[in-house]
Nucleic acid binder design. Sequence first.
DNA 1: GCCAACGTTGGC
DNA 2: GCCAACGTTGGC
Length: 161
Amino acid sequence: MAPTRSRRPRRWLFKSEPDVFSIDDLAAAPDRTTFWDGVRNYQARNLLRDDIQPGDGVLYYHSGANPPHVAGVAEVVRGGYPDPTQFDPASPYHDPGSSADEPRWYCVDVRFVERFARPVTLAELKAAPALSAMMVTQRGARLSVQPVTEKEWAAVLKMAR
DNA sequence: GCCAACGTTGGC
DNA sequence: GCCAACGTTGGC
């Protein structure tokens, strides 16, 4: 296990389709932990590999839900390491162009922290003046792993409570 | 189901 | 290096 680098925790938003893996699935997982696999976008990959570290906070966003919403909070418990699914020919995330020597894709481990009693919908996020610059509220913001500022983090938690 | 936004691919 | 075609995401 790599040593934890010390710095102020950062905040992120991770998207997941609840039909594929919901926050309830995370809460029911062994040790309430899973590896965040299947990210196949270079910008998100760079964040997973370089910037997302243990102790960071994650807003767990349910995309494709009706309505889409932030469902709760998770915590990063292991920083970037090669996503094992890229090497698995049976996986839908298999990437024959990647190799163990030079892995192309990375994942992190996240642990369940909290499921909001009151999920915060995308419409609510868009309506909040404090969140006008939040990435997920921007048109066409498809990045599945997004940075969140401390102010945005606090505002979303406040809305959920 | 539609379609806007965005990323990737590949011809040139 | 440009850019059209194509595939995917994801809100609506």
